[in-house]
């Protein structure tokens, strides 16, 4: 288990010594109990740093902002950014390294292990505690959480309020880090793709009905895209409106705006949008499930990405976010890749 004091000390060491320019971590929210992302520029601010099962955000997202900010600066501060990452998030760092979006020197990774559990699912917590006011949730040594409410502390079995993705997690500890807190914990879930099975067993008609109901809800707010650390393109191929025009863009090209997807949130367009997103995340998504958490319409978006993660593993034996030196899933092949589907 990570001792918060150790994490604070490690963070303080690098911030005080000027090794990093600032640290991206978590702090208590102004309202509620779910931790929020926080940027620590001064060592004394670090007293507010927290690490608990409510630190659901994938902070790797903020490395996108950091990169864009730096690109706009004339003489950018070249020191790395300190960042607190969980096991899943660390694989996102690896994908960004693999895609040369960031350099290893750009980040100082404070790795935190989730131990035997992981992150809570806010919806499950709310349901479990029906209206009680929660002030704090803590990790335990065993597979449970300690939840502090106005009525005192209770120990809750992890399974009851745990995020589904955490039950399928195989990297409870960061795979890349400069310091690792909480030790290296190995997790071998019985069925890392178990949550997909119910969907997969449905008939084509039932599958369609399910997704039609879900994706028709989409209002195309693009929260899923905005929160995704892998969606770092300046312009998204599904957008036709914000294709930037630069001084050197030829007139011909300005006129060539492809409408792969209409803006209006109709069922067909929502399908195309979400499928393009899933395909573009194949071999890149680390199942941080931030898209699903951010979705205001409660669409189970994680399924789409998880399905392709499963197929990448099954068909191509490809694991996402472990090796930064290998070519990406779709920029590589094996002679023995399956082709039984080809006539």
């Amino acid at each position: 288990m990570v001792a918060l004091e150790d994490l604070k000390q490690e963070a303080k060491n690098v911030l005080e010594g000027g090794t990093v320019k600032y640290i991206i971590g978590y702090k208590k929210p102004a309202v509620g109990f779910m931790a929020v992302p926080a940027f620590f520029h001064k060592p004394e601010d670090l007293d507010a740093l927290v690490w608990d099962p409510t630190c659901v955000h994938n902070l790797v997202l903020f490395l996108k902002d950091e990169k864009k900010k730096k690109l706009g600066q004339k003489e950018p501060d070249e020191r790395p950014v300190g960042i607190v990452v969980k096991g899943c998030d660390s694989r996102a760092v690896n994908v960004l390294l693999q895609e040369n979006y960031i350099d290893r020197e750009n980040v100082y990774i404070l790795g935190v292990s989730c131990g035997k559990t992981g992150m809570v699912d806010l919806k499950k917590v709310r349901k479990y505690f029906k209206g009680k006011i929660i002030s704090q949730i803590d990790f335990n040594e065993n597979e449970s959480f300690t939840v502090t409410t106005t009525e005192g502390k209770v120990e809750v079995p992890a399974a009851d309020i745990f995020a589904v993705r955490c039950t399928e997690c195989i990297t409870a500890s960061p795979v890349i880090h400069d310091v690792l807190l909480g030790g290296d914990s190995v997790r071998t879930p019985e069925n890392p793709f178990g949550s997909l099975e119910e969907m997969e067993s449905k008939s084509q008609g039932q599958k369609w009905d399910f997704w039609q109901e879900q994706l028709t809800k989409c209002i195309r707010c693009y929260a899923c895209r905005s929160i995704c650390p892998m969606c770092y393109c300046d312009e998204c191929v599904v957008d036709t409106i914000n294709f930037a025009v630069y001084p050197d863009t030829p007139a011909e090209e300005k006129a060539q705006k492809i409408k792969w997807v209409e803006k209006s949130p109709t069922t067909s367009e929502n399908f195309i949008y979400h499928m393009v997103r899933a395909i573009h995340l194949a071999g890149r998504c680390v199942d941080c499930a931030e898209c699903e958490r951010a979705c205001p319409m409660d669409i189970p978006l994680r399924f789409l990405n998880k399905k392709l993660e499963k197929e990448s593993k099954k068909l191509f034996d490809y694991d996402v976010g472990y090796d930064t030196e290998i070519p990406s899933l779709i920029s590589s092949f094996r002679d023995e890749d399956p082709e039984d589907f080809i006539r």
């Binding site: 895609e99 040369n100 979006y101 770092y232 393109c233 300046d234 312009e235 930037a244 630069y246 863009t249 070519p327 990406s328 779709i330 920029s331 590589s332």
Partner: peptide
């Protein structure tokens, strides 16, 4: 060049070594 992020995927798939990364 405005859209390229230098991820190298095109470099990986090119059978002719025709693509390289210059200044990212």
């Amino acid at each position: 060049k405005h859209l390229c992020t230098g991820c190298r995927m095109c470099v990986d798939v090119c059978a002719y070594d025709a693509i390289s990364i210059k200044d990212g």
